[in-house]
Design a protein around this nucleic acid. Structure first.
Length: 185
DNA sequence: TGGATGATCGCA
DNA sequence: GCGATCATCCAG
Protein backbone atom coordinates (compact mmCIF):
# COMPACT_ATOMS: atom_id res chain seq x y z
CA UNK A 1 0.00 0.00 0.00
CA UNK A 2 1.32 3.42 -0.97
CA UNK A 3 1.93 5.95 1.80
CA UNK A 4 0.11 9.27 1.42
CA UNK A 5 -0.13 12.62 3.23
CA UNK A 6 -2.49 11.10 5.79
CA UNK A 7 0.24 8.72 6.98
CA UNK A 8 2.59 11.65 7.61
CA UNK A 9 -0.02 13.90 9.26
CA UNK A 10 0.81 12.54 12.72
CA UNK A 11 3.43 13.14 15.42
CA UNK A 12 6.92 12.83 13.93
CA UNK A 13 8.14 10.44 16.62
CA UNK A 14 5.20 8.15 15.88
CA UNK A 15 5.78 8.14 12.12
CA UNK A 16 9.57 7.74 12.18
CA UNK A 17 9.79 4.09 13.31
CA UNK A 18 6.99 3.18 10.91
CA UNK A 19 9.17 4.26 7.99
CA UNK A 20 11.58 1.40 8.73
CA UNK A 21 11.08 -1.42 6.24
CA UNK A 22 9.22 0.92 3.89
CA UNK A 23 10.26 0.67 0.23
CA UNK A 24 11.42 3.89 -1.38
CA UNK A 25 10.67 3.96 -5.12
CA UNK A 26 12.46 6.54 -7.25
CA UNK A 27 12.15 6.90 -11.01
CA UNK A 28 14.16 9.22 -13.24
CA UNK A 29 14.74 9.28 -16.99
CA UNK A 30 17.66 6.92 -16.36
CA UNK A 31 15.48 4.26 -14.77
CA UNK A 32 13.97 2.97 -11.54
CA UNK A 33 15.76 2.41 -8.24
CA UNK A 34 14.24 1.05 -5.05
CA UNK A 35 15.50 0.42 -1.56
CA UNK A 36 14.23 -0.57 1.87
CA UNK A 37 14.54 2.09 4.57
CA UNK A 38 16.86 0.89 7.32
CA UNK A 39 17.68 4.01 9.35
CA UNK A 40 15.95 7.38 9.93
CA UNK A 41 16.16 10.39 12.24
CA UNK A 42 13.29 12.56 13.49
CA UNK A 43 13.54 16.36 13.57
CA UNK A 44 10.93 18.36 15.43
CA UNK A 45 10.17 22.05 16.04
CA UNK A 46 11.13 24.63 18.65
CA UNK A 47 11.88 22.01 21.32
CA UNK A 48 14.53 20.39 19.13
CA UNK A 49 17.62 22.61 18.81
CA UNK A 50 19.18 20.35 16.16
CA UNK A 51 16.20 20.86 13.84
CA UNK A 52 16.23 23.34 10.97
CA UNK A 53 12.82 24.39 12.28
CA UNK A 54 14.08 25.20 15.79
CA UNK A 55 14.15 28.98 15.29
CA UNK A 56 10.92 29.29 13.35
CA UNK A 57 10.45 29.19 9.59
CA UNK A 58 13.20 30.43 7.24
CA UNK A 59 13.30 30.29 3.43
CA UNK A 60 14.95 26.87 3.62
CA UNK A 61 13.01 25.32 6.50
CA UNK A 62 9.56 26.58 5.51
CA UNK A 63 8.88 23.24 3.82
CA UNK A 64 9.02 21.61 7.26
CA UNK A 65 6.13 23.85 8.35
CA UNK A 66 4.04 23.01 5.29
CA UNK A 67 1.72 20.12 4.46
CA UNK A 68 2.80 16.56 5.32
CA UNK A 69 3.86 13.88 2.88
CA UNK A 70 6.18 16.07 0.84
CA UNK A 71 9.93 15.90 0.31
CA UNK A 72 12.37 18.19 2.11
CA UNK A 73 15.72 18.08 0.31
CA UNK A 74 18.56 20.40 1.27
CA UNK A 75 22.19 20.93 0.28
CA UNK A 76 24.79 20.51 3.01
CA UNK A 77 28.57 20.84 3.43
CA UNK A 78 28.89 22.32 -0.03
CA UNK A 79 28.61 18.93 -1.70
CA UNK A 80 25.90 16.66 -0.35
CA UNK A 81 22.12 16.46 -0.31
CA UNK A 82 19.83 15.03 2.37
CA UNK A 83 16.36 13.56 1.80
CA UNK A 84 13.58 14.07 4.35
CA UNK A 85 9.81 13.59 4.43
CA UNK A 86 7.64 16.27 6.04
CA UNK A 87 5.44 15.24 8.95
CA UNK A 88 2.71 16.76 11.17
CA UNK A 89 -0.38 18.69 10.02
CA UNK A 90 0.08 21.82 7.91
CA UNK A 91 1.51 24.62 10.09
CA UNK A 92 3.34 22.34 12.52
CA UNK A 93 7.01 21.65 11.73
CA UNK A 94 8.50 18.18 11.49
CA UNK A 95 10.56 16.03 9.16
CA UNK A 96 12.23 12.64 9.01
CA UNK A 97 15.72 12.27 7.57
CA UNK A 98 16.37 9.11 5.56
CA UNK A 99 19.83 7.99 6.67
CA UNK A 100 20.26 4.54 5.14
CA UNK A 101 18.69 2.20 2.60
CA UNK A 102 19.13 -1.42 1.66
CA UNK A 103 19.31 -1.36 -2.17
CA UNK A 104 16.69 -3.60 -3.80
CA UNK A 105 16.52 -2.83 -7.52
CA UNK A 106 18.47 -0.60 -9.88
CA UNK A 107 21.80 -1.42 -8.23
CA UNK A 108 23.72 -1.04 -11.48
CA UNK A 109 22.41 2.50 -11.92
CA UNK A 110 23.24 3.32 -8.30
CA UNK A 111 26.77 1.98 -8.71
CA UNK A 112 27.28 4.09 -11.82
CA UNK A 113 26.12 7.24 -10.06
CA UNK A 114 28.19 6.55 -6.96
CA UNK A 115 31.30 5.37 -8.77
CA UNK A 116 31.44 2.38 -6.40
CA UNK A 117 31.03 -1.33 -6.95
CA UNK A 118 30.28 -2.53 -3.41
CA UNK A 119 26.54 -2.71 -2.76
CA UNK A 120 27.20 -2.18 0.94
CA UNK A 121 28.51 1.33 0.26
CA UNK A 122 25.77 2.52 -2.10
CA UNK A 123 23.13 3.89 0.27
CA UNK A 124 24.52 3.65 3.82
CA UNK A 125 24.45 7.38 4.55
CA UNK A 126 22.14 10.32 3.82
CA UNK A 127 24.49 11.92 1.28
CA UNK A 128 25.32 8.61 -0.36
CA UNK A 129 21.71 7.58 -0.95
CA UNK A 130 20.89 10.93 -2.53
CA UNK A 131 23.84 10.49 -4.89
CA UNK A 132 22.78 6.91 -5.69
CA UNK A 133 19.23 8.05 -6.46
CA UNK A 134 20.26 11.29 -8.24
CA UNK A 135 18.29 13.38 -5.73
CA UNK A 136 19.23 17.06 -5.57
CA UNK A 137 17.68 20.40 -4.59
CA UNK A 138 15.24 20.26 -7.50
CA UNK A 139 13.54 17.39 -5.64
CA UNK A 140 12.62 19.68 -2.72
CA UNK A 141 8.94 20.02 -1.81
CA UNK A 142 7.62 17.27 -4.11
CA UNK A 143 4.41 15.40 -3.38
CA UNK A 144 4.57 11.63 -2.89
CA UNK A 145 1.17 11.32 -4.50
CA UNK A 146 1.94 12.75 -7.92
CA UNK A 147 3.10 10.53 -10.72
CA UNK A 148 5.22 12.64 -13.04
CA UNK A 149 8.87 11.90 -13.71
CA UNK A 150 10.90 12.26 -11.54
CA UNK A 151 8.68 10.12 -9.40
CA UNK A 152 9.10 9.32 -5.73
CA UNK A 153 6.82 6.94 -3.85
CA UNK A 154 6.79 5.00 -0.60
CA UNK A 155 5.28 1.55 -0.12
CA UNK A 156 4.48 0.13 3.31
CA UNK A 157 5.89 -3.27 4.28
CA UNK A 158 3.58 -6.23 4.80
CA UNK A 159 4.51 -6.51 8.45
CA UNK A 160 5.93 -3.96 10.86
CA UNK A 161 9.65 -4.01 11.44
CA UNK A 162 11.35 -4.27 14.85
CA UNK A 163 13.57 -1.31 15.70
CA UNK A 164 15.87 0.29 18.22
CA UNK A 165 16.12 3.90 19.25
CA UNK A 166 19.45 5.73 19.67
CA UNK A 167 20.81 9.29 19.81
CA UNK A 168 21.18 11.06 16.48
CA UNK A 169 24.62 11.43 14.89
CA UNK A 170 26.43 14.14 12.97
CA UNK A 171 24.83 16.96 14.95
CA UNK A 172 26.20 19.42 17.49
CA UNK A 173 23.09 20.28 19.48
CA UNK A 174 20.52 18.13 21.27
CA UNK A 175 22.85 15.15 21.03
CA UNK A 176 21.11 13.27 23.81
CA UNK A 177 17.65 12.99 22.27
CA UNK A 178 16.99 9.41 21.11
CA UNK A 179 15.43 10.36 17.80
CA UNK A 180 17.40 7.96 15.60
CA UNK A 181 15.62 4.76 14.62
CA UNK A 182 17.23 1.64 13.17
CA UNK A 183 15.63 -1.53 11.88
CA UNK A 184 16.94 -4.50 13.85
CA UNK A 185 18.16 -7.68 12.18
C1' DT B 1 41.71 13.04 11.41
C1' DG B 2 41.17 16.75 8.52
C1' DG B 3 40.01 18.83 4.05
C1' DA B 4 36.64 19.70 0.40
C1' DT B 5 33.15 23.19 -0.68
C1' DG B 6 29.06 26.47 -0.83
C1' DA B 7 24.42 27.59 0.97
C1' DT B 8 22.25 29.41 4.97
C1' DC B 9 21.26 32.46 8.76
C1' DG B 10 21.93 35.67 12.51
C1' DC B 11 23.94 39.79 13.44
C1' DA B 12 25.97 44.11 12.21
C1' DG C 1 27.74 42.34 3.71
C1' DC C 2 30.40 39.02 6.95
C1' DG C 3 31.63 34.95 9.24
C1' DA C 4 30.48 30.87 11.81
C1' DT C 5 28.21 26.89 11.11
C1' DC C 6 26.67 22.80 8.91
C1' DA C 7 21.19 16.51 9.73
C1' DT C 8 28.50 14.49 5.16
C1' DC C 9 31.92 11.77 2.80
C1' DC C 10 36.42 10.13 1.59
C1' DA C 11 41.33 9.60 1.41
C1' DG C 12 45.34 9.00 3.99
Amino acid sequence: MMLTAEFFSRPTLEVAPELLGVTLFVETEQGVCTGSIVEVEAYLGSDDLASHAAGGPTPRSSVMFGPPGRTYVYFIYGMHHCLNFVTEPDGIPGAILIRSLKPLTGQDLMMTRRGKSAVANLCNGPGKLCQALAIDRTWNNLSLEESQCPKIHLHAPETKVAFTCLPRIGIGKAKDLPYRFLATC
